[in-house]
């Protein structure tokens, strides 16, 4: 029974890590996606300054999630990574490039354009790869005897390309609504202008994915069209969030578009979990199949329960200190 409890606790911790990561690194990756489309260099400075104090902490969650997976659900780690081999490389290469570009752009004068490209390219690559990972998870993995036995490019299908592009649009939407909150004047006007087209793109992709998934997977169809009708609340709430984004952008509210976008992400995420629960390596292995020994889960849990409040507190403090608008010409050079 001990094993049962710990696996669920660990699923909660890693689930929290994933959504924290998606929401927080999402908007700063999104800024990288919007970077080439920004009207001018002044806007780019404001975009970068708006996340400079926080993006570092955002990526913390990815690493915590990754390390936690090996310790708590090793099977997820040892099937996802081989199956997504080339995607993982693109993801890491993208994250490294954008991270380094972020630091050096602030210190650069004549070489600034170079770091602009590295930041935008790295952000796009990493976002696409993350979206494709989500798609690959929905798609499921070919396994045999606890090993991945599929091919190197099984993860790259029209479906995962769609989820990859969809997440890029979603991150861009998070970024544009974040920018509404953090900027003013002509930069804010630009952010308002691009938000609705981005939302429409995201909703179109979500709609296609929602129709496509039950078609490719009978288990998902069963889940959604059985008696468990309460789960239909999730897409309903998601749509309500989308409606809120439109309404608040029309009324030029500043905070609501970002909050509603986060809501849209959370309900989509919960919908995804509900579709697959309790399978963590679809279609074959559940949470409990993927668990490590309960002593190992317990051993790490002690350290993690100690460090999570510190990371959360540090994160909250940082966002509090850097609340308010970012103005042009402020902050850096």
């Amino acid at each position: 029974m001990e094993a049962f409890d710990l696996s669920v606790i660990w699923a909660g911790i890693i689930g929290l890590g994933v959504i924290m990561y998606v929401l927080m690194d999402g908007f700063d990756l999104g800024l990288g996606i919007l970077f080439p489309f920004a009207p001018d260099e002044g806007t780019r400075d404001v975009m970068m300054n708006s996340v400079a104090p926080v993006w570092d902490g955002n990526e913390t969650w990815l690493i915590l999630g990754g390390a936690g997976l090996l310790a708590a659900f090793p099977l997820v780690y040892t099937i996802f990574l081989p199956a997504l081999y080339l995607g993982v490389f693109l993801l890491l290469a993208g994250l490294i490039f954008r991270g380094v570009a972020f630091e050096f752009r602030f210190k650069a004068n004549t070489s600034k354009y170079l770091w602009n490209w590295a930041f935008a390219g790295g952000s796009m690559l990493a976002s696409f790869a993350q979206g494709a990972v989500v798609g690959a998870y929905i798609q499921g993995f070919e396994t045999e005897n606890l090993r991945y036995v599929g091919g190197a490019l099984d993860w790259l299908t029209p479906f995962t390309v769609l989820t990859g592009l969809g997440l890029m649009a979603g991150y861009a939407l998070l970024a544009s609504t974040w920018l509404i909150l953090k900027s003013e004047g002509r930069i804010q006007d630009w952010a308002y202008r691009i938000t609705i087209p981005l939302l429409v793109t995201v909703l179109v992709v979500f709609a296609i994915v929602s129709v496509w998934t039950p078609m490719i997977d009978p288990m998902v169809r069963e889940r959604w069209f059985s008696n468990l009708s309460v789960i239909w609340l999730l897409p309903a709430l998601g749509l309500l969030c989308a409606f809120q984004i439109v309404r608040s952008v029309r009324n030029r509210f500043e905070g609501m578009p970002f909050v509603a976008t986060m809501g849209l992400f959370v309900f989509t995420y919960l919908g995804l979990i509900v579709s697959r629960w309790p399978y963590v390596v679809p279609p074959d292995y559940t949470l409990w199949d993927a668990s490590s020994a309960w002593q190992s889960q317990l051993f790490l849990l002690i350290g993690v329960l100690f460090v999570i409040p510190i990371v959360l507190g540090y994160t909250a403090w940082t966002y509090w200190v850097f609340r308010g608008k970012v103005r042009e010409g402020e902050g850096y050079h």
Binding site: A67, G68, L70, A71, A72, P74, Y77, T78, S292, A293, Q295, S296, F299, L300, G303, V304
Partner: peptide, 11 residues
Amino acid sequence: TSNFLGPVLSY
């Protein structure tokens, strides 16, 4: 080796 290396590397 995940039962050992997982927690140790995570620490």
